[in-house]
Design a protein around this nucleic acid. Sequence first.
DNA 1: GGAAATTCGTTTCATTTGAAACTATTATTC
DNA 2: GAATAATAGTTTCAAATGAAACGAATTTCC
Lengths: 170, 170
Amino acid sequence: MKRISRGKNPTPDFALERFVPYRLSVLTNIVSRTIARLYGERFGLGIPEWRVMAVLGRFAPLSSTDVCTRTAMDKVRVSRAVERLRRAQLIEQATDPKDRRRSRLRLSTSGDRMHDAIVPMAQAAEALLLDGLSPAEKRTLDRLLTRLTERAMAIAPAALDPSGPDPGDA
Amino acid sequence: MKRISRGKNPTPDFALERFVPYRLSVLTNIVSRTIARLYGERFGLGIPEWRVMAVLGRFAPLSSTDVCTRTAMDKVRVSRAVERLRRAQLIEQATDPKDRRRSRLRLSTSGDRMHDAIVPMAQAAEALLLDGLSPAEKRTLDRLLTRLTERAMAIAPAALDPSGPDPGDA
DNA sequence: GGAAATTCGTTTCATTTGAAACTATTATTC
DNA sequence: GAATAATAGTTTCAAATGAAACGAATTTCC
C-alpha cells in the first residue's frame, strides 16, 4: 500500500478541481455573492435577511423556528436577521398567544413592498444563470439538486460516530 | 403592474425552496460541513488548510497567488491557512529566488503523509454522496457544474454596473 | 537610472459566525 | 401540583471572515 512519496507518482491522483464538493463550493460562492449584491447594495439586506423575508412573503405568519426550518439557517442567524429586519421596520413581530415562547413574524407593509421589488430581480438572476441550459438539463439539475441534498442530509449525521469526542486543537 | 398586496395573491409565487441559488447553498453547506469533519476532527485542519494541502499535493511548488487561483480563495484566507500549516510543520515555505516577493510552497514530509491519508477519505465521502446517481447522471452533474460555474463567473462582474455607488444602509 | 505604478503577501479593523450558556415559557412526570 | 425536562429564542464569547491599508520587491515608463 506504500508508494514512493516524493518521487514520480506524488499521490493517487487527487484533483481538487474535479472534486464535486469543492466544485459545489466554488459555484455556490460565486452565485451567492453575485445575488447578494442585488439586494445588498440596493436594499441594504444581507443573505439571512433576504431569506427570512422570502419565506415570510410566502408563508407568514411563521415563528422563528419555522423560519429556521424553511431557510435551513440556525436559530442564531435567524434571531439576528429578525432583529435587523424589525429595526428596519420590514417585519412585524408579535407573540403567539397560544404559546408565549413563540413569536409570530410577518412582513410589514413596506417589507411586503420591498419583497415584491426583490422577487423579480432574484428570478431574473436565476434565469440568467440557467440561460445556457436546455429544458432537459434544467429538469436534470432540479432532480440532481433534490437527490443530492436528500443524500447529503442522510449521510451528514453518520459522519459523527466512531472515534470519541476529541476536541482536536492542533 | 400593481397587485392587491395583502389580499388573495400575496406575490407572483416566489418559492425559496425551488430557487436554485438557495438550493445550491443548502446543499453545499451540508456537504462542506460533513467533509470538513472528516479531516477537521481527526487532523485538526480547517477547510482552507485542507484546500491548500490538496493543491500543493498535486502542483507544488506554488506561490500563494497560485494557490489563490487554484483554490478560488482570496489571498487573506490563503495567507492565514499557509501560516497555520507552516506552524504545524505541514508545509515548507521558501522565497522564490527569481522574484523575492513570491513564496514557494510545498508539502513537508509529514504534510505529504497527512495528505495521502486524507485523500482516500475525501474520495470515499464523495463516492458516498454520488452513490445513488447513475453513471449518466454523474456525467451530467459534471457537465452542469462546469457550465454553471463558467456562466456564473461570466455574469458575476456584470452585476456591479448600473446604479452608481450607493452605500445603502437601510 | 530613477520616479511612478503594479504585484505579492501580510496586517488591521470592523463585521459575521456559531457553539454553548442562558432566560422564559410550556410540557411531562411522579 | 410541584419538580423535572424540554422547547423557543437571545446573549456571550472566541474564532473566522474579507475589504482596505500597508510594506516590500519588481516592472514600467520617461
